[in-house]
Write a protein that binds this DNA or RNA. Structure first.
Lengths: 348, 348
DNA sequence: TAATGACTTGCAATCGTTTGCAGAGTATAC
DNA sequence: GTATACTCTGCAAACGATTGCAAGTCATTA
């Protein structure tokens, strides 16, 4: 990399000034067609590429954006990363990625670090403390991805969590389930709140009273889901939920393990619906019914929206996009056993 | 972000020169304790942070490294990303990540784009065309992660693919399998070659002749694995392998589907061992026996190695690190059925 | 008292681009 | 032939930090 060649070298060989070389790249219309060709030809031969750092410094535009995500290890988030990267690459932007691991402090550090790189915009999946942290970035254009920080007037690109959850739980009520448990995420995260709301709506619609003790909060990870599900499933059969709606992919794994630990068969003894699709949901036997999110599209769209905004200038109204979720019925749900018995009685 | 404050603003308020402010941050020993404190105090109040771009430009050191990986969506790769990021963050380096999707052209583009950001080093999971592409980066310090590009004298940090595969296949031969198939990756990738070599070694040790037609090449993805496995498993029972060793995680999924399609029970009719551990390998019933890779550690180590090299200067000899794999025996393998019969005969 | 040295600080050049301004050259209109 | 417009190019000043060099202060030493 010590062999970097700069404008001057190209300029010398092409017998023009530094300025002309620069313009040949950035304002082709301003330079004579012949000279431009000559310059580009020589630049190409030498393998010249404008130094982004210098260019960004001078223009005050870095041609890069920041991406702050909670954890790449979650396959759903990896999708988000990919979507953003692809959209950015398509328009020749570079992305700086940081992981917060759901930790507000790491988020603040990431923002500080990011700031000194002069990104032109930011896509963030905010942690619970984002509201405060985001003041650090001044008036940098920000798009909140997947969740909302709660900042008023923020631009957001999210899925319809409430609607998705509602359909999932409707599916369960239609099967005849009356005691439907939920393993919810921590309620300081907007997605968790919305999914919980969808659960409540579907219950209400089915005329089933909401029982707070059927909702357990997990920590968004496998162990949290397992604990929460254990709590719900180890109750005596008459109080035990016959179906479980789980608020994200990792916790669904925990819930499945909990069911297995207790010897509950899926779907005979317990119906399960999870939020987020995944490799294993398709692969398991029985495969798991889920609310799938268009994660890639979501992220791609968020990035495009951000870049549009950067290039077309500020918009007056906050952008707030919601993408629909996709309910995928597989084989982890069935009518509850009591229900079966009642049907048999009726037939006689 | 338009509210960026620069050295001069701090300098003015602190009644010192620009130079002193800069030195207060970068060479604290060179400035009087009292002034330094005053400067830092004021800088802190204003929320001043040195502009990385300007700093990098002037010093010729960007405090950043590049990371080029084939695809974040593969959970194994996501681990690599996390490992590199964590190691880099710990030492205040920023990482530029690019995906190649195993496409040589994208790799070249990534390298070009990277170059203009003046990274100080590069960690790359090379594609098949990397040997050529890497000439683009001049003498930038590079570490090859997970695979080798084939460039002589390159620095590499990889796992012991051959040894790991050998143990996996030994496990199968010890169970009594004679016809062991392999779904291998494309042989222009070093890991695929090495894993295939381990397979051959284990067969040789068990006195089983190598049969080329028991080895099918897949494309590293699920569909490729499925096709390859279908080919092997749809043969008449007398020619069909009783066990399968699959070269990576995605293809293992394909192989499992292929087995299911053909109504083969695991492990009764078919034993399976995969390379790479994963969520679903633990979760499936039966859970899948695998060769696990220390992906996070591998990446962390690769990044540390690179940064050490950057800070301590060039090393004379190429660094070549191999980490051991971990064989995890689960429930997807068993003795072949013929073997069982023979045992019963012996008992009489 | 003058000289030596240690310790601080500031000046100004520099990193590689971009770009406002002005000047040179050519073409068009009167 | 002169005025006007237009096209193209170069000069030199930025962008925001770092750093070699020189100069200033002060204490110590001969």
């Amino acid at each position: 990399m010590e062999i970097m060649i700069d404008v001057d070298q190209v300029a010398n060989l092409a017998q023009v000034s530094r300025a002309t070389v620069s313009r040949a790249f950035t304002r082709p219309d301003l330079v004579n067609a012949k000279t431009r060709e000559r310059v580009l030809e020589i630049a190409n031969q030498l393998g010249y590429q404008p130094n982004q750092l210098a260019s960004a410094l001078r223009r005050g535009q870095s041609q890069s954006i920041g991406l702050i995500i909670s954890d790449v290890l979650n396959p759903g988030n990896a999708m988000l990363v990919k979507g953003v990267q692809d959209a950015a690459a398509k328009r020749d932007y570079t992305v700086f990625m940081f992981n917060t691991d759901e930790d507000s402090d790491k988020e603040r550090k990431a923002l500080e670090s990011l700031r000194s790189h002069m990104p032109q915009g930011l896509i963030i999946m905010p942690t619970a403390g984002a509201q405060e942290n985001l003041s650090l970035v001044g008036n940098l254009p920000v798009i909140e991805l997947d969740r909302a920080s709660g900042i008023k007037g923020a631009h957001t690109v999210m899925v319809d969590n409430t609607g998705g959850s509602r359909i999932a739980v409707q599916h369960l009520t239609k099967l005849g389930h009356k005691r439907i448990g939920m393993v919810a995420g921590s309620l300081d995260i907007s997605t968790a709140v919305e999914r919980h709301a969808g659960y409540q709506q579907a219950l209400a619609e089915a005329g089933i009273p909401y029982q707070a003790n059927l909702v357990q909060i997990g920590n968004h990870r496998e162990d949290g889901g397992r604990l929460a599900a254990q709590n719900l499933l180890s109750r005596p059969a008459s109080e035990r939920p016959t179906a479980l709606f789980v608020g994200n992919n990792e916790m669904t794994i925990g819930a499945i393990f909990a069911a297995r630990d207790l010897g509950l068969r899926i779907p005979e003894d317990l119906s399960i619906v999870g939020f987020d699709d995944s490799r294993w949901a398709k692969l398991l036997q029985p495969s798991i019914t889920v609310v799938a999110q268009p994660a890639y599209e979501l992220a791609y769209l968020a990035c495009e929206t951000l870049l549009d905004r950067l290039e077309r200038g500020r918009t007056q109204k906050p952008i707030q996009i919601r993408l629909a979720t996709n309910f995928i019925q597989r084989f982890s749900t069935a009518a509850p056993i009591e229900e079966e018995r009642e049907k048999k009685k009726e037939k006689r």
